[in-house]
Design a binder for these strands. Sequence first.
DNA 1: TCAGGTAACCAAACCGTTTTGAATTTTGCA
DNA 2: TGCAAAATTCAAAACGGTTTGGTTACCTGA
Lengths: 343, 343
Amino acid sequence: MNLKELSHKLGLSPTTVSRALNGYPEVSEATREKVVAAARRHNYQPNTKAIRLATGRAMAVGHVVPLSNRHEIVNPIFADFIAGAGEMYSRAGYDLTLSIVPDAQETRTYRELHSRGTVDGVIVHSPLENDRRIALLQELEIPFVVHGRATGSELPYSWVDVNNRRAFKRATEFLLDLGHRRIALINGLEFMDFAIRRRRGYLDALEGHGLPADPDLMVSDEMTETHGYRHAQRMLARPNAPTAFLCSSMIIGLGVRRAIEDAGLKMGRDISIIIHDDELSYMRNGDDVPIFTATRSSVREAGRRAATMLLGIIAKTSPSPSHELLEADLIIGQSTGPAPKAP
Amino acid sequence: MNLKELSHKLGLSPTTVSRALNGYPEVSEATREKVVAAARRHNYQPNTKAIRLATGRAMAVGHVVPLSNRHEIVNPIFADFIAGAGEMYSRAGYDLTLSIVPDAQETRTYRELHSRGTVDGVIVHSPLENDRRIALLQELEIPFVVHGRATGSELPYSWVDVNNRRAFKRATEFLLDLGHRRIALINGLEFMDFAIRRRRGYLDALEGHGLPADPDLMVSDEMTETHGYRHAQRMLARPNAPTAFLCSSMIIGLGVRRAIEDAGLKMGRDISIIIHDDELSYMRNGDDVPIFTATRSSVREAGRRAATMLLGIIAKTSPSPSHELLEADLIIGQSTGPAPKAP
DNA sequence: TCAGGTAACCAAACCGTTTTGAATTTTGCA
DNA sequence: TGCAAAATTCAAAACGGTTTGGTTACCTGA
C-alpha cells in the first residue's frame, strides 16, 4: 500500500493525504480523521526511501567506531553507549547506521557518509589527542557530537564527556586522605583522550598534596584483565610497593585484585583499589553492594545525552557547539581502606 | 555534484553516465574512461537516497539486538560479532542499521523495518527456545540469518552457529579423562538457545560415562563475574564440592577463579576450569599462553559468516535456508589438571 | 546498393514521497 | 446578496538516480 493507492481509495489527492498524515494545518479535521483511519485500516507505512529522497533528510545518524589496527580492539563500552543513544533515535524516528572501520579508512568513511547523504549527523567515538576527525567533520559541515573530547583541538565542537580529570583527582584525594602515599595508576592507552585527562587528575591531586609523581607507579596499556594483573604483580613485587591502585576500568581492576590476592594480600585491608566504573550492563560492579570503590558514570546515559544533543543540532533547535560535562560519582565500596601502617 | 550536472559537463546524457559508472556493456570503452575520470575528478558520489528509491533496494542490513527488560543487558558479544559482519557489509557496499530494542517492541520493529523498506535483510541475535521471531520473519518474507539456532522451531531457516553441544561435550570429556567426577556447570540463562545446547553437551558426556547429573552442580544465571564467584563459592563450600568447573563465558571464569583462590586453592592443581572463549577483542584469554583451558570459537568470524550468508540470500546467489555449523577448538591452558586424589 | 544487425547513445518514464503554486470551496461580513 | 478573505484541496514539479524503449550511425554481406 503506497500513498497513491491510499489516496485513490479515499478519493483524495496524494497531497492532501500526505498532509493529513503529517499533521499539517491546512487540512480539515474531518478529512484528517478519515485519512488516518484509512491509513491504519490498510496498514499504510510511508516508504522510507521515498521520504528520504523527497525531504533530503537521511533520517539516520552514523556512528563510526574506529577499529585500531594497532590493537584490534572494539571499544567494549560502545555497546552500552549505543544502547543509550539508540533509545533516543528510535523515539525521534531516526535510524542508527553503524560503521566499524579500520582507522586507515576513517577519513574516507566520513567523506562518503557525507557526500552520499547516508546520514544527517555523526557521533565520534574514542577521540584521540589532536584528533584530526574534528577538523575533517567541520570542513565537511556534517553535524557531529564527540563522545569525549580531543585535547589539543582548538576548534570549537560539540561534545559530551565525563569529567575524567576531576573524577580521578577526587579518587586520588580520597586515597590520600586514607593515608596512602604510594598510589599506582593503571591507565588506558594514553593516546586516547580520556586516559590523558585521568592521568592529569591523578597528578593534580598528588601535586596538591606536595607529593612527587613516581613514573614507576604509572602505566598506560590496553585495558585487559591480564594487563591489570601483570602490572600490579610487577609493582607489588618491588621494594617500595604501592598501597593503592587507581584503575581506569573495571576489567583492569579485576586483574589487579587477582594480583593482590595472589600476593597473599587482602584487597581493602592491605591494598586499596579504586576503579572507574562505566556501568556497563554486562560488567556490574556488584549488584547491591559495590565491590570496588569507584568513580561511577553511566556510559548509557552519556549515549542518551550525546544522541539528544546531536538530534538537536540536526534539527537546529540546539546551538551548534554544545557541551555537556557529566560529573562522576564517587561510590564507596569494599576495596578501599586506610593505608596500612608502615612496618 | 550530482548525475545531471556531471553528465552535462561531459556532454552526455544521464543514462550513459549512469551506465558507464555501473559497468553496463552498452557503452564504449572510450566513453567509460572519460566518464570515470570525470567522476573521480569532480568527486562525484551517487546519492544513496536516490539509488535506494530508484532500485527499490535498501542496500542495508538490519541488526536487531534485543534488550531484555528482565536483565537489561546488552549482549557483550555483539560488538565483536558486528565488527566481523560490518567488514563484509562495507565490502559489498551495504550499510548496517542497528536497532537495540526492548523485547516488547521487537515485533513492531521487524514489521516496520519491512513495510517501510529500511533494510533488505536482517540478522537475528540471541535466539531463544521456540523463538517467535523466526515465524514472524518468515511470514514477512524478509531474508534473515540467525546467529545461533532456536531449539523447538521446526520451520526451516538460515543460521550460523557454533556447535555448542559438541564443544561442551568435548570439554566435559576432557575433564572426565583427567579423572574429574564432580564437574560443575556454570551456564548462561537457559532460555537462551546456546545455553540449552551447552547443558545438553555436558549431560551427553556425563551420560556417556555412566555418571548421574547432580542438579546441585548445575546453575543457569546471568554471565557476570559476580555470579561466577558466588556460585563457585557456594559449591566449593559444600561437603561434596566439585573438582572442576565448566563456565559458559570467560567472565564467569574470572569469578570462579577468584572463588577458588579465595578458598585457598590453586586453579589448575586443586580445581580445574574450562571456559568457553568467544575471542572477544577486549577480553582475551591470555595473549601468548592461554590462561584458561577453553572451547574457542571466534564470534567475529561468526559475524563474517553470517553476513556473507545473508548477503548471498539477499542477492539470491545462495540457497535460502543455509546453515553453517562452526566447530570450536579445545585449547589447553593452565587452568586444567588431573583431578586431585580423594583425601 | 540496400536490408539487417549491432554498437553507442538518448529522452522519457519511473521509484514514492514532499512541496510549490494555483484552483476551488467555504466562510465572514458589509 | 455579493465579495474578499480564509480554508481546503489539488495538479504538477521536485528529489536524484535507474531502467525502458527508442533512435541514430555505422558495419556487414549479398
